[in-house]
């Protein structure tokens, strides 16, 4: 099968992992180009800045049409639509009840990069940022998510919105699952733990360093 897109990728990036994970769940073939984010800071090289002036990873270039996408939420949306068209359960964009909820989750997921994501880069790679402030923001985000998922679980739901996992779950999953890398443990968050387990149980689930395969939980 031919690659649906090219992914400029870094193995330790939670944002890149969103795309690798969704591709694995959809069994969508793609081509990965490793970018030396660390120690080489290649995402800030001229070649990469000309592709994405924001200097962030991942970058997706679609095979058909050559669209360049630099926001993971846009990439997730593209993949859902490319896979299942407007009917895709992963992105019920025009459903009057679910569509706005999914947008809410996508925005929440994007916010995690600057909280848990930065706290993690600081703890792991000594990223020159205020690690403590990022960690405090991360803890706030975990508490907010715990509340949201508790409400959902009281209503009998498991996912961010609706009866099927959506790209909102995938936008949130990586940094929440990786928060222990930044010293933010999951112990006090039972609803988050249930939801993490559900995502990890999805057929086609893929791991990344810091997220162990499910056999260790059993």
């Amino acid at each position: 099968m031919s690659a649906a897109f090219t992914l400029y990728d870094y193995v330790l990036s939670g944002n890149c992992y969103k795309i690798r994970l969704f591709a694995s769940l959809l069994a969508m073939p793609y081509q990965s180009v490793a970018i030396d984010f660390y120690p080489g800071y290649e995402h800030r090289s001229e070649r990469m800045l000309s592709l994405n002036p924001a200097g962030t990873l991942p970058v997706m270039v679609t095979s058909a049409g050559g669209q360049v996408l630099t926001e993971t939420n846009a990439m997730l949306a593209w993949m859902a639509l490319h896979d299942g068209g407007a009917q895709t359960p992963w992105f019920p964009a025009v459903d009057p009840a679910l569509g706005p909820q999914v947008q809410q989750g996508l925005a929440f997921g994007a916010g995690l990069t600057d909280s848990i994501g930065l706290a993690r880069l600081h703890a792991m790679l000594d990223w020159p940022v205020d690690g403590e402030a990022a960690k405090r923001a991360g803890l706030k985000h975990l508490r907010a998510l715990e509340l949201h998922l508790t409400d959902r679980q009281i209503d009998g739901g498991l996912w961010w919105a609706g009866a099927h996992p959506t790209i909102a779950d995938l936008a949130c999953f990586p940094y929440v699952a990786l928060s222990p890398d930044a010293g933010l443990e999951h112990d006090g968050f039972p609803a988050i733990r249930r939801w993490l387990y559900a995502v990890r149980s999805l057929p086609g689930f893929a791991t990344m360093p810091g997220i162990h395969p499910l056999h260790e939980l059993r």
């Binding site: 193995v11 030396d36 080489g40 890398d181 360093p209």
Partner: peptide, 17 residues
């Protein structure tokens, strides 16, 4: 080079946690 380093980082970050 990027692939070599990332292979090593993948392994080592699995150990880190």
């Amino acid at each position: 080079y990027a692939d070599l380093v990332q292979f090593q980082q993948m392994i080592f970050l699995q150990d880190r946690s």
